[in-house]
Design a protein around this nucleic acid. Structure first.
Lengths: 254, 254
DNA sequence: CGTTTAATCTCGACT
DNA sequence: AGTCGAGGTTAAACG
């Protein structure tokens, strides 16, 4: 359904109906958006594209950028009402965290409502999970003599990507990054190495090695890494087999 | 401009024209999306909403979620062509990083092209930067007797949010988080405290305190914090209940 | 539920 | 251009 410059009553009814029947809805035109929740925001009245998906997620797009200016990932309550000046409002509420997005429509240029078939298969190559698999199967590509001890080992402060032993018998903590490693990645590795050292007898603590495996590393990160006595090794993911991510709906439409 | 079920030639011409004149464009209907760049992805043919903004950013939305299925934050080159089966294709290319999104349209249900006035003022309240300002101006709300020494003090491994002195004359390192603090925040604070201790004479090192200021803290983080002899103090950016108790909130929603 | 972490993160700021 | 760090991050995985 396409409505050009709908009047208030038409917009209101159409919105209610479309929300009720869980359609994909868009309203394009001047509006004002207020958000209160984890933070608070207020847009001056301007032209935006309001997009409401069948799963209840809401986003308001401006003229620039991939990010919406306002959004609501999940809505527990969607309401269409009128404000004190009789303008049509869309309220998207969420509990936990308590959040409210309130959109006031002025003179919408366009409203669209249609059924959007849920997407099919989506295949992504080159994820970190795939790199884990690749590295697990061929640890010696990082360094001769490495043997896998654990994968995703919980260590109190998070999970260690790869926990291994080197040819000399030393414990090795490996952190994998799918793209260029930054200082944050170094901090993360450092955190895991410290945790392991604390859990081992003092005699073995000094022997614990930390390796950052990534296709590249930033210059400051490398400096920091060396200061901490940790190591960097080039590791690039060559995806062998696409990982299938089924993006099925949260609920079925009857 | 609104085109319902446009044929190939109409879609192609309209797309070219709209891109040329930097309009906001949407094409809704079955299509296939291929992405190659930092990773690689492939969508099976399905119904999507393709959104092209005047700034050249591109996003492809499915039926669920705030995040697009595919996107391109910046495009250096936008092209409309035909594939080997004569289907209309939209190519969005980007250099640095080298990325390509390729959309093949099958039988579009709808195409929209319109001018979208750039957004007006957008005000966000409750950012971490604002929390810094608020805390700086009222350090004693955290603890009586605290006096500011430095803000954003660099210490090699990053900047200390707030560097202060307590009533007893001890140095205090304060780390601020705008939302619930995790173990990573604790580790960050730990790094700063250690750095400060190393820079001070041994006599003063033991007296250095570390405070994590956030609205909340996760249970494991709290445990870790206490183990390290650090402290947590509640600090919220936004007033909890502004109307019932008109207590002076740190941030006002104008 | 809460917690943690990857992400084609995006986006802005700073060097 | 490169790097860093916040974000109403989102979203998924795991306990």
């Amino acid at each position: 359904m396409i409505l050009e410059t709908p009047d208030k009553a038409t917009l209101e009814d159409a919105l209610r109906l479309a929300i009720e029947s869980r359609e994909f809805v868009q309203v394009i035109g001047p509006c004002e958006v207020v958000y209160v929740g984890r933070a608070a925001s207020l847009t001056e009245s301007g032209e935006y594209v309001v997009m409401l998906k069948p799963d209840g997620s809401l986003q308001v797009h401006g003229a620039r950028g991939v990010k919406p200016i306002n959004w609501q990932p999940k809505t527990d309550d969607l309401r269409v009402t009128r404000d004190e000046d009789d303008r049509v409002m869309l309220l998207a509420e969420r509990r936990s965290p308590s959040e409210l997005v309130q959109i006031t429509f002025f003179e919408p240029r366009l409203m669209i409502a249609l059924e959007l078939r849920d997407e099919k298969v989506f295949q992504l190559h080159g994820s970190e999970a795939q790199m884990h698999e690749a590295l697990k199967r061929n640890l010696s590509s990082l360094e001769i003599g490495l043997t896998l001890l654990e994968h995703e080992l919980p260590v109190g402060v998070g999970d260690i990507d790869i926990y291994a032993r080197d040819a000399q018998g030393c414990v090795v903590v490996i952190e994998i990054k799918r793209s260029k490693a930054s200082q944050e990645a170094v901090h993360q590795l450092e955190r895991y190495v410290s945790a392991v050292r604390l859990q081992l007898p003092p005699l073995f603590s000094a022997g614990v090695r930390g390796i950052l495996a990534a296709p590249d590393i930033s210059k400051p990160a490398r400096k920091q890494l060396e200061r901490l006595g940790l190591e960097f090794k080039v590791f690039t993911a060559l995806p062998e087999e696409p990982k299938t991510v089924p993006q099925t709906g949260l609920f079925e439409l009857a």
